[in-house]
Design a binder for these strands. Structure first.
Lengths: 368, 368
DNA sequence: CTGAAAGCGCTAACAA
DNA sequence: TTGTTAGCGCTTTCAG
């Protein structure tokens, strides 16, 4: 009895030709008559043929495609989750012959042009990039795209560049959602304030704007009585918040649009206002849990870093291996973290940290 | 001249053994002396051996894993998104030689035991299942697991069975999050009510309980003044809600824990209470958009159907093809939909419906 | 124009 | 305890 054939062999059997001919038809190579080619393609279509990418990669010897990754290595908070998502997806794709070249930078925007340059020189087929300083990166990104190396930005965009796609939560929307929530949390006519990192950063500015526009729409007579810049400094953030709370005793809400919310929580505690002032924060990390428990933090806007990483890799791999077109933008909806669902977020699960992966990144990165 | 060997062959050559022995050493299989194993592992370490995953996938994939899928086919709302997630992931895996056998049932719990039976008889290697009627399904699921066919439940659980894993948003948590939100939305001492499908359904009961327990914790003196059962009937839901709104003129909030929220929206409209009574709904579909715009719906608890489908497939495929152990449960956090982020949900994008997939399901399903 | 055959690196079944 | 061998599905080269 004839064995159960698969893929190109199956087609060959059905079309009564050899696998070589099938291959020629499938790849539009020459040395095949128009008639047989059509017949083969027809059959392929009928049985819904899809090539086995693992086999292709193996045969072709080389890894099918190589993807370069340039993301900050900062160990806490957002970026380790972003890495997690990238690595998880990378591991799966390696099964299918997609290779990865990791060039982590120490901090956002720190030496990313060099890293990107190296990746391009290195001959990768596509790049995943957090564009720390968009201005410096734009010409390089354009050069890459010019060389037909697609660049997918993740989390932080280089909007002026020719990058093929961007995966992110729009900062403005972040602020809008916070504003809408805040508007529902506090009574009409409330005074609220915003704590930003620094307003010169596009990201924080957009969030602040989104909040400022949306909050009044959902809170009749609500007003924003202040915008604090904490400059990501613990003491400065604490002090400025503390002062504000003294100055505006009837403050009803605070929106912190940087990850650095702990000083604000402490300031609220120091003023005995924890729980009384509605606090909406951004992002999520383990130390925030206690403030959720105490009711200091009412909600946090979660930017899904893991998912962002995952999606960026998928997008690029799908394009490179299957010619899938890029969506110009992939804008995720931020999640809302409250005390009920807090425990479900991976940030709250210490044990789940995947050490092997981290080690691997390091070794691959230094292998250069 | 000796060709340039790679991977396991290279190690074999260096250690003066056969590739079979190397394989045994690398995989900790028995039938190999301690000495040779150590020698081989040492060499592997020295040359920094990493397995070629494509080759492994290709070789191991010879088994040709088949996954059976039994999910309701209901065309609207939740399940088409669930299908979307399943199909998206299935398409990727088919590249790697994983096959799928689709046995959609018309509605949740309708003929699912027969479908599952067929899948088992059919010799699939694993099953993805929405357990519509857990009681009837449990023995079958146990039988499958007994035959070493893992069953992954998705969205609806068969908790008493031996299913390998469950991917879902816990109904209770759904209610809790709604309760917490509602507690923050309405002032202290508020009266709120719940609209359920029917309280005999575990799902709706758990949601109602979760809400009832959590709401008072976040709203001082808040009370639940009523629980309506709409039985998924448009008229009944409308009428009962309409009556309740008349009976309790100072009602501050309504939580609808079934997908069937339109009648409630209409009742609120009829009473001129749209926007005045805070309405929290469940799930998401296109027709809800207008009620978000009008402010009738304050927020909706989104159960991430697409992601659930995706995750269920991944879990099962990872186990079948790479022996990854099952997490006993995968509990997702529900999303919060408000007017700011509404447009980002795929349910709101009509155009994105993937017709080809649907067609394909149908053909595969009827191919039997 | 078409067929046959040799691998890609790994797994697993069977010999020795 | 170890070696040998037959594929996995695809690409590629060399004959016909």
């Amino acid at each position: 009895m004839t064995r159960k054939r698969r893929g190109i062999h199956l087609i060959a059997e059905m079309a009564q030709v050899s696998i070589g001919t099938v291959d020629r038809a499938l790849h539009g190579r020459n040395g095949i008559s128009h008639a047989t080619r059509e017949r083969i393609l027809q059959i392929a279509r009928e049985i819904g043929y899809t090539p086995n990418l693992a086999a292709r990669a193996l045969s072709a010897g080389k890894a099918g495609v190589r993807i370069g990754v340039c993301i900050p290595r900062e160990i806490h908070f957002f970026y380790d989750q972003l890495w997690g998502g990238v690595l998880e997806e990378a591991r799966r794709l390696e099964h299918m012959g997609v290779a990865f070249e990791f060039r982590p930078v120490r901090n956002l925007g720190e030496g990313d042009t060099e890293a990107l340059r190296e990746l391009i020189e290195d001959g990768v087929d596509g790049v995943i990039l957090t564009a720390g300083n968009p201005d410096g990166l734009t010409p390089l990104v354009n050069e890459a795209e010019g060389r037909n190396i697609p660049v997918v930005c993740v989390s932080t965009d280089a909007p002026e560049s020719l990058r093929s796609s961007i995966v992110c939560v729009e900062p403005r929307l972040n602020g809008q959602l916070a504003g809408e929530l805040m508007g529902k949390f506090v009574p009409a006519g409330s005074k609220v304030a915003v704590v930003a990192g620094m307003l010169t950063a596009m990201d924080h500015l957009s969030k602040t704007e989104g909040f400022s526009v949306t909050f009044p729409k959902h809170c009749h007579g609500g007003q924003i009585v202040g915008v604090i810049e904490g400059h990501e400094d613990e003491d400065e953030s604490f002090q400025k918040t503390f002062d504000l709370l003294g100055r505006v005793p009837d403050l009803a809400g605070l929106y912190v649009n940087t990850v650095n919310c702990l000083p604000v929580c402490r300031a609220l505690g120091a003023r005995q206002l924890a729980g009384r002032v509605k606090l909406i924060t951004t992002d999520l990390f383990a130390e925030m849990a206690t403030y959720f428990a105490k009711g200091t933090i009412t909600a946090s806007i979660y930017q899904q870093p893991h998912r962002q990483g995952q999606l960026a890799v998928r997008l690029l791999a799908d394009n490179l291996t299957a010619n899938q077109p890029f969506p110009p933008t992939v804008h995720l909806s931020p999640g809302v973290v409250m005390s009920s669902n807090l425990h479900l977020f991976r940030e709250m699960r210490r044990s789940e940290t995947k050490l092997p992966d981290v080690v691997r990144v390091a070794s691959l990165a230094t292998k250069v």
